[in-house]
Design a binder for these strands. Structure first.
Lengths: 329, 329
DNA sequence: CTGAAAGCGCTTACAG
DNA sequence: CTGAAAGCGCTTACAG
């Protein structure tokens, strides 16, 4: 194709290449001729050939377990935005399980593709497994909900521990004597939330009840709420969707929120503010997490120096679903 | 790199290439030697070189305006799943606006990258603009919420018109005399919903009230609800999130749902079933839409013959947010 | 069954 | 400022 342009413009391949890359001086006349030819032929360089000769590419790969759930999708959006702004195209590789097939695929996606770097959304154990299997041909940066020491790859973090801690403190300060936790599936992210909850209870020298396990969705929250022991007055949920199910289950049993039980969510999804009752929750800025993660990757690609970790903060959003515990009967 | 393997195994480049591609007979002994060398060197073929020589690639590109909102994200997930199952890697190109920069980028992403084909999530005008600008170097399939005639590219459809129609019929059959519509931003998808609503009203020879415009999010639904005229008894919303905001706005004015006003959502997002009241809504299977879209693309890539359009169906999910209108005061 | 050689579409020293 | 040539890492006729 380059050859077509060269012929049309009456110059050599090299010259066309020079005006396309724009790095080396070309006379104005020649440049104009070439540009005209490019336009007439609506020529587009072949990315594969460029990648081959340059040894580098302008694509980055995002490795993730999921693309639909709020935390993942919002983080993905943040990464994509930042990558696009920096002129990179993005590939996405989904690792559905830690099975060797999926893992190999994901690892290959960074090893065999001509990519400039990769980011892994390290929110769960499957992504963590991929991360562990990634050996450094290109820069790889990860993001996660909980600060972990001794990671092989640089990380951008959200502070889920702080989030869980603040939420639990909030409930305690309202006068609740016990705060229950309904967990989303474990992995780094959930782990941090639970850990913050536990720490707040321990610091307050208050009993730490058994964790009730849910999945990510509202229905699992609904079912988990049934497994809550009697006498509960406050519950922190692993995410807002679970909280929705919990509130509904409570209401169905004739228990008002927050009159009978206080409920706190996690994430501050868009619907949280408009729920009835509006959900008290912990806001995590996943999009910013994505921005930070990509910024680290870009810096690494550009300068060759491994970036430092980055940490975000969680903020408490108090709305209508929490209140002091009901007076003892 | 191939050369390293060849040297290590004591064979020619061609032989290594043959065992890698597996298409041409190689003696068992040679194959074993090569495979051993591949393993020892943990050799991975360079995708750029392969793409260059093969002229084809195993990546498909997804072009979309958004990756976070429910309809887009669920469709994206469906496409990705199907692509992965078929052995394709996926790139994603986000077109944030119809501005020429964004448009050019998106078009280039299919023109310059070595891709096997592309799918565009044609839910809005910006994606439609990209679609219109795509001229056929590789197969391109689109998906959309409303059947449109005379499309240049094959489409997989959701039947939003049917969905809007069914929802409106449901409200009418409950005894409502007027059904209002709160629209999400227009573009193909929203357009179909509105069209179905309008058709149901016209068929019933009932007045068609003015459309109230919202955005995609709950807050915009909340605000839109304030612009509803007095005396409303039934409202169909462009999506579930808007419905959430509408319910809340109504409640804040002391109007019960469904006691005072019936509200219907659209999409059946996971939270809809656990809402209070549980949301009556129209289920659209976006994930299946993604599967169908990719299947069409794959067929086109494999057989070279342009696929036929595919149409899905919308189903009505009746829950708690709809009821007969209140008795006249 | 296996090897030597050409070629995929570019970029970039190296000469002029 | 511009061109001829080599080379990026593979695959695939073409000979043997």
């Amino acid at each position: 194709m380059l050859a077509d342009v060269a012929e049309r413009a009456g110059v050599s391949l090299a010259t066309v290449s020079r005006v396309m890359t724009g790095r080396i001086p070309v006379s104005a006349r020649t440049r104009a001729r070439v540009e005209a030819a490019v336009a007439e032929l609506s020529y587009r360089p072949n990315a594969a050939a460029q990648a081959l000769v340059n040894g580098t590419s302008t694509v980055v790969s995002i490795i993730t377990k999921n693309t639909l759930r709020w935390g993942y999708a919002a983080t993905l959006q943040g990464i994509e935005e930042a990558a696009r702004a920096a002129g990179y195209a993005v590939m996405i590789a989904v690792v559905e399980s830690a099975g060797s097939v999926d893992l190999t695929r994901a690892v290959d996606s960074v090893a065999t593709r001509a990519i400039a770097g990769a980011v892994v959304i390290d929110f769960d154990e499957d992504s963590a497994a991929v991360l562990a299997a990634l050996h450094g041909s290109v820069p790889v940066v990860a993001c996660s909900g909980m600060v972990k020491q001794g990671q092989r790859h640089p990380h951008a973090y959200l502070d889920d521990v702080e989030g869980g801690f603040k939420a639990t403190r909030h409930l305690l300060s309202l006068g609740h004597e016990v705060v229950h936790y309904i967990a989303i599936p474990s992995g780094a992210e959930a782990g941090g939330r639970e850990r913050g909850w536990r720490r707040a209870l321990e610091e307050a020298r208050v009993p730490v009840p058994e964790v009730v396990q849910a999945d990510y969705d509202p229905l699992s929250g609904f079912e988990a709420a049934r497994r809550l022991p009697p006498g509960v007055t406050a519950v922190l949920c692993g995410n807002d969707e679970v909280a929705i199910g919990v509130v509904r289950a409570l209401n169905d049993r004739g228990i008002a929120v927050p009159g009978g039980v206080s409920v706190v969510g996690f994430d501050d999804q868009p619907f949280a503010a408009l729920w009835s009752p509006a959900l008290t929750t912990v806001r995590q800025d996943f999009r910013d997490l994505g921005h930070r993660t990509f910024a680290m990757l870009e810096q690494w690609i550009d300068t060759g120096v491994r970036p430092n970790d980055s940490v975000g903060t969680a903020s408490m959003i108090v709305r209508e679903s929490t209140a002091p515990p009901p007076a003892r009967g």
